[in-house]
Write a protein that binds this DNA or RNA. Structure first.
Lengths: 141, 141
DNA sequence: ATAAACCTGACTAAAATAGTCAAGTATGAA
DNA sequence: TTCATACTTGACTATTTTAGTCAGGTTTAT
């Protein structure tokens, strides 16, 4: 059970962005250098973040990205949704639900995985970008 | 972020086992058929479960496996530990901790991933095999 | 103009996963 | 004793996913 780099990078980059938001757009090049993430890879990630209205791009020289919403309104779950990072605990697709109806032993654990999925998703729904930046400032004091 | 089949299978198989425990050993062949898991793959998994004293093997005809501890004393975390299924949210190894000391922006999210890891592990520490079987019986009524 | 920076899609190497396969050994029962 | 059942082990491999790279754009401030 592990978090992918794509998901980790997206949050790292957005946290970086959140620190400089409302001042100037932040270029991917800067984020790439600061966070040690490949520029090309960042572009893929930000393309999705833009399409899902997490960030807004500013083109041209001195361009870059800014958050499209307030940091407190961007939850981790929104970020992961945007880049298709999903929490998956079961293999079963919806069509095969019939085989998980409480009659076979498969169902013995089905409920558990649902619980686990909810448990993790709840964490993502609670945490916002603002929490991250705040937490970092507090710990620095 | 997803659970691997190995982890899912291990729990499914042990839940299956827990239902029949204290009566007769359960053969991997039976589990394989009931749960739809490759027999060879199950053998790999049970080899580790045995070495980690989660189960005990009974050889010979009518042999199979039984739980080595009481179902309520086997937590999911014990199972995952046994088969090397770990929750990993960060890439950083211990040596590179220097680069995560609160001075670089990397740390902005480091704390978050630790929280997430704990959040998930807590779930695994709380749930026992007994919970699974119990829950299943209750829902059936 | 031109350089910085966004934008897009196709491609690919490496790693992890999810097994398979082969060749055993141990044991209970007929 | 012999035979079938079932555990045991280690090596191998196909598939999938991940984590990028690469090549070509377009837009816009200066």
């Amino acid at each position: 059970m592990k978090l992918t780099s794509k998901g980790r990078y997206a949050v790292m980059a957005l946290a970086d962005l959140a620190k400089f938001d409302n001042i100037n757009p932040v270029s991917l090049r800067d984020i790439s250098l600061r966070q040690g993430i490949s520029l090309d890879y960042l572009e893929q990630i930000f393309s999705k973040l833009r399409k899902n209205e997490i960030v807004q791009s500013v083109r041209g020289t001195q361009g870059g990205y800014i958050l499209k919403k307030k940091a407190k309104d961007i939850k981790l779950t929104n970020i992961f949704d945007a880049i298709d990072e999903k929490v998956k605990t079961v293999q079963c697709k919806k069509e095969s639900k019939k085989s998980c109806n409480g009659k076979s032993t498969k169902c013995l654990t089905h409920n558990l995985w649902d619980e686990l999925e909810n448990h993790i998703n709840n964490f993502f729904k609670e945490k916002s970008l603002e929490d991250l930046v705040k937490d970092n400032i507090e710990r620095r004091i």
